[in-house]
């Protein structure tokens, strides 16, 4: 465990909790893509099946349970508890266009052709693109609440920190996982445009709004 890995995990945790708190405090999930959140719940579910088969460390297990719990709680808030505030009309990205190709790719390109390994690969690939419905929704409405942009920044930062962690691990441990690295690069690249807007607008006290 190096400092980039740890701060990456914490950044991910901050993102997830921030979103949950925002929805809870405002009693509203307006501006949040339910489809992205369902996909993140699917990502955690398919990746953390090893909770039952493989014990790594208390830290590892506890974080997995927190991610899973928060992710399901978020989906519950969006589709059940605060359903009335869910902006379904603007959440129009077709999730099947991501899930089906990603599922096919996980079958074709994986480390090992076993159920758990294919599901793990699926989760890595799906995570890399799961934010697209959310970014699409912001493009469509042309704006995002500032707290939502903090969430997105922390979520994007997490994978960027993991990229540095992988470079570190390659040099100091000789460890590398090509599937995770390629997907992690794709995932980080998808946030680049958003990072630019976040730094130039939100950090200067302006609301994130796109030109019409």
């Amino acid at each position: 465990m190096n400092v980039f890995r740890l701060t990456g995990d914490l950044s991910h945790l901050v993102a997830i909790i921030l979103l949950l708190l925002k929805i809870w405090k405002t009693r509203s999930c307006a501006g949040i893509s339910g489809k992205s959140q369902v996909m993140f719940a699917l990502v955690f579910t398919t990746r953390y099946l090893d909770l039952f088969t493989n014990f790594i460390s208390p830290y590892n297990s506890v974080m997995k349970v927190i991610y899973l719990g928060c992710s399901y709680a978020t989906v519950y808030m969006i589709y059940m508890k605060f359903k009335a505030s869910y902006d379904g009309n603007h959440d129009t990205f077709r999730a099947e266009f991501l899930i089906i190709p990603v599922g096919g790719l996980a079958f074709l390109v994986n480390h090992e052709f076993t159920p758990l390994e294919i599901l793990w690969t699926f989760s890595i690939y799906l995570e890399s693109v799961a934010i697209l419905p959310q970014l699409f929704m912001i493009t469509k409405t042309g704006e995002a609440e500032t707290i939502t942009t903090h969430y997105l920044f922390a979520l994007g930062l997490y994978r960027a920190l993991y990229l540095i962690n992988w470079i570190w691990r390659y040099y100091f441990e000789g460890f590398f996982d090509l599937i995770a690295i390629v997907a992690g690069c794709v995932q980080t690249i998808l946030y680049c445009d958003f990072f630019y807007l976040y730094i130039t607008k939100v950090l200067h006290g302006k609301k994130l709004s796109l030109p019409a």
Binding site: M1, R5, E112, Y162
Partner: peptide
């Protein structure tokens, strides 16, 4: 190519 069966990352 490293296949990591023991996945310590989250």
């Amino acid at each position: 190519l490293c296949s990591s069966t023991e996945k310590d990352e989250l």
